[in-house]
Design a protein around this nucleic acid. Structure first.
Lengths: 228, 228
DNA sequence: GTTTGCGTTTCTGTATTCAAAGACTGGTTT
DNA sequence: AAACCAGTCTTTGAATACAGAAACGCAAAC
């Protein structure tokens, strides 16, 4: 089964759980679940104590989060959880639309047979969760599909770039999905994209991606008045 | 009750010259001018001494550079200047093509009158340098046009993302431009893009961007055998 | 009552210290 | 002669120490 050994990069045993990664994961979750409120000011010291780590990993994690736009570093003054701004969010989506289309198109063109089968399975699952309005299962499948997509697209840079934008999107979704999201529609659109990728038709996959992003943009605009 | 001057400090003169920024700039230049050779192994200690700073700013700069793909951090082992890989470079261009098109289109749609005038001036300058094969002036105008484009596109996220990919592209160009680049053609294509933006026609600007990226891709492929 | 100036405090930015994980070397064993 | 083992050395990952800068508070002055 292990036919696909990682090539030249000699990392067979990279068990790299650095504390910086951990801090980053913790903080990103706290921010995107609004446990750390948008606009709130943070101090490295306090964060270090609450997370139970030293200042160094916290600081490095904050710099990564700043790159992702989740926090804003005010030089010599401190760190602020970036306020939620629907207008900015639309700019994020503007960029995501292009990258998602690229990834979707590439995945359709480059996916292996196993990956196509996996996409089909996910599409079926999404249809079920859409009819049942099973939010938890939907989120699980969404995550799985994302990973599969990034893997199938075979472009590490596109992946890295997408991940840079994912955080802000996640937080916005989390804040507004209860009131504004249309889960059945979203599930249908995701399923359509998965099927297009599975079928290996790049242009269909690109179109499906655009349709999905249209929905995301509409969702963002619909939630706009609720802004913080 | 009193004035809440909390974050009212919209200082346009924020002297944000942190040593980390300085280290990042120095190291990026050293890497993209091949002063630090691709594949070379580095140690934070040595870099700190050669640059004349402590390990902390060097370390933070290295993490940024790793994000940009210019160095690879091998956990617990050290830092390696990422070897130049033409195949990877084509993936970078794949992503850049999408982002450049977006930025070009937006700039055409959103630029102010002053910015359009500036684009026209740059286009004229580029035509001159193309005919004269003035590489230095070409580089200056290219940089100027880039900044103007990012400014006119009004999308901070697209900008940030592009900058993430710029380093690798710069290094590749630096390594190969003497032998492979066609300056007059490149200048013509840049000028065409600038004129399209200036004219305010988004689709023309997008097409011009695609044409330019076609050239960049061809350049990358042409240089491929010279790879390290 | 509002403002201004000075001392205090807290915080970031940076250097230094500490610990542990690999890499390396030299010698011994098979 | 090759392989292996132990001890040393180098290097990162992380915590802590330190210095300077910005904010805060209080009091005095207008």
């Amino acid at each position: 089964m292990s036919q696909n050994i990682r090539n030249l990069s000699m990392d067979p045993t990279v068990k790299t759980t650095t504390l910086t990664d951990l801090a980053h994961a913790r903080l990103e979750e706290m921010i995107s679940t609004l446990l750390l409120a948008p606009g709130e000011f943070l101090s490295e010291q306090v964060l270090a104590e609450t997370v139970g780590l030293g200042r160094t990993p916290i600081r490095e994690a904050l710099q990564r989060l700043a790159r992702e736009g989740l926090v804003t570093i005010l030089p010599r003054r401190g760190v602020q959880v970036t306020p939620i701004d629907a207008a900015e969010q639309l700019l994020v989506i503007e960029v995501r639309r292009e990258l998602e289309r690229l990834i979707s198109r590439n995945a359709a063109a480059r996916a292996t047979e196993e990956q196509r089968a996996a996409f089909s399975a996910i599409a079926d699952g999404l249809d079920r969760t859409g009819r049942a309005s099973d939010a938890l299962e939907f989120l699980r499948l969404d995550r799985e599909m994302n990973l599969l997509m990034l893997d199938a697209a075979h472009n590490a840079f596109a992946v890295r770039t997408m991940q840079l934008l994912a955080g802000l999107s996640r937080r916005y979704w989390y804040q507004n999905h209860r009131d504004t999201a249309d889960l059945p529609l979203s599930a249908r659109l995701h399923a359509a994209q998965a099927r297009a990728v599975a079928s290996g038709d790049p242009e269909a996959a690109a179109a499906a991606s655009d349709a999905l992003m249209d929905y995301v943009a509409a969702f963002t605009k619909a939630a706009q008045p609720r802004e913080n």
